[in-house]
């Protein structure tokens, strides 16, 4: 503020006023009107978990190896299985995933050796009950229903 003329004419303040004035251009608006406009979610986004099934046979890809449950820092995955006496392999009976405690770190996804468990791009996981946050095998395979908003 060395220049007294600038001080008197408030040039520093006018500069700021001009900056905000320029920002009024409608094309500069960055607001996204969620839910009317959905934010674009990146391909690698770590959102709602999904238990993948074989695209043709609809059989689960999970081999019940329990690695995801071991990798999970919050121990929120429970894999139950029973040994099939014919194939000598473990068959998945249930798979629960407590999304309320999940922090979407992606460690389970990394641990899965067969790409059965995957974090998807879905991010609308709100429920009205705490119990609704615990997803079972059916929910994990089908995925959450797309949310519809009315206004």
């Amino acid at each position: 503020m060395a220049n007294p003329i600038n001080t008197f004419l408030l040039t520093d303040l006018l500069k700021g006023l001009w900056t905000t004035f320029k920002n009024q251009k409608p094309s500069l608006v960055v607001t996204e009107q969620y839910p009317r406009e959905r934010p674009p979610v990146m391909e690698r986004y770590r959102g709602a978990p999904r238990l993948n099934t074989h695209p043709e046979t609809a059989e689960t890809l999970c081999i019940s190896c329990n690695l995801c449950a071991l990798a999970c820092p919050e121990q929120l995955i429970v894999v139950t299985s029973e040994r099939n006496p014919e194939t000598r392999r473990k068959d998945l009976t249930n798979f629960t995933y407590d999304t309320s405690r999940c922090m979407f770190c992606g460690l389970c996804e990394d641990a899965c050796p067969v790409d059965a468990l995957e974090l998807t791009q879905d991010f609308e996981m709100a429920t009205f009950t705490r119990e609704g946050q615990i997803w079972d095998r059916q929910m994990l395979e089908e995925g959450p229903l797309p949310t519809e908003y009315r206004h």
Partner: peptide, 8 residues
């Protein structure tokens, strides 16, 4: 204000 602040 929203206009000045690139909002809606």
């Amino acid at each position: 204000l929203a206009d000045l602040q690139v909002r809606l």
